[in-house]
């Protein structure tokens, strides 16, 4: 193949333990990540995200199936030469400084370039603290150093396991920009796991959603997340008239919130529909007091998605 995908897995499976107590952490996972994308890997706690990433980084041997990076089985020597990873939280030698930690890692990969380390420390905002022992770093600083470590070899593929963990809101914002920059400015492929919907929505081009080790959805972020995971909540008067008008097109329910004078109408419509909802109401002479887009939590989305799966509904697992 002239230009194989950045990541390709074929029925990748990992079962921990044996017999009754065994845990199927990842089951028959088929992923394909094109080069140059920011790819989100979304799932709740325990879904199997980290286990998948450990298999990609050749830390864990698959029980079945295989994982390829840039067309080479990750178990082959040298297959990970153009990959950088941050797996499940940053780990460093606490007694070494940030800079020395990076030096040790770079030398381990036989690729020590002091100017590269200096530039990376600058990029992740640690230049001023680079000479301090990592033991004295805050969680967020370690996370940044972890990202710098992943980028040491100037990899084509960057695999980041929950990179915004432990960062404050400003840090999260900054990290998202940084990650998008890796793809958009430097042409890298980024594979990023998260359990936060909005994080994936704001940074990724495509997303795979896994639950209990199985992929339940895969597709472009825009389509996938908009489709089914939000609804509009509206306060309007007169209520009856508004409800009737909306029912012609959407599913509507009433919800009284203690303390609110008028009940809410909950409209099962994706956010892009909101202008049409308002237009319709205004056209019918209804006064619209408030329109709120409410996200389902990831958990309830998963509940819905997996019950689809068990009911064998039309939108069940993507393949």
């Amino acid at each position: 193949m002239p230009n194989p995908p950045a990541i390709c897995t074929d029925s990748l499976t990992k079962t921990f333990g044996k017999g009754k107590t065994s845990i199927a952490a990842v089951r028959n996972l088929n992923l394909e990540v094109e080069r140059g994308q920011v790819y989100g890997f979304l799932g709740p706690n325990g879904a199997g995200k980290t286990t998948t990433i450990r298999m990609l980084m050749d830390l864990v041997r698959p029980s079945a199936g295989r994982a390829e990076i840039h067309g080479r089985n990750v178990r082959e020597a040298g297959a990970l030469a153009r990959v950088g990873g941050l797996v499940e939280g940053p780990a460093f030698y606490g007694y070494l400084s940030g800079r020395n930690n990076l030096e040790v890692l770079a030398r381990t990969a036989n690729d020590y370039r002091p100017e590269r380390i200096r530039a990376l420390l600058e990029q992740v905002g640690l230049a001023a603290r680079a000479a301090q022992p990592v033991g004295a770093y805050s969680m967020g600083m370690k996370q940044r150093l972890g990202v710098a470590a992943a980028l040491l070899g100037d990899p084509d593929l960057v695999v980041l396991d929950e990179p915004t963990n432990g960062l404050d809101p400003a840090g999260i914002q900054e990290m998202r920009g940084f990650i998008r920059g890796l793809a958009k400015e430097q042409g890298k492929t980024v594979f990023i796991s998260s359990h936060l919907l909005n994080e994936v929505e704001q940074t990724c081009d495509r997303v795979a959603i896994i639950h209990k080790g199985e992929m339940i959805r895969e597709g472009p972020v825009a389509g996938l997340l908009a489709e089914s995971i939000s609804n509009l909540r509206i306060q309007a008067a007169p209520l009856e008239q508004a409800e009737q008008a909306l029912r012609e097109r959407w599913e509507v329910a009433r919800e009284s919130v203690p303390g609110d004078a008028i009940p809410w109408l909950v409209v099962k419509a994706p956010p892009p529909d909101s202008p049409r909802v308002v237009e319709l109401l205004v056209g019918k002479g209804v006064r619209v007091h408030q329109v709120v887009i409410r996200r389902q939590t990831l958990e309830s989305y998963f509940l819905a998605a997996t019950s689809d799966l068990h009911a064998g509904g039309p939108e069940a697992a993507h393949d």
Partner: peptide, 17 residues
């Protein structure tokens, strides 16, 4: 204990490490 193997193993062969 430091959790460093996960950073080291992808960078070189296990045997050499």
């Amino acid at each position: 204990q430091s959790g460093m193997w996960k950073n080291l193993i992808p960078r070189n062969r296990r045997a050499l490490l």
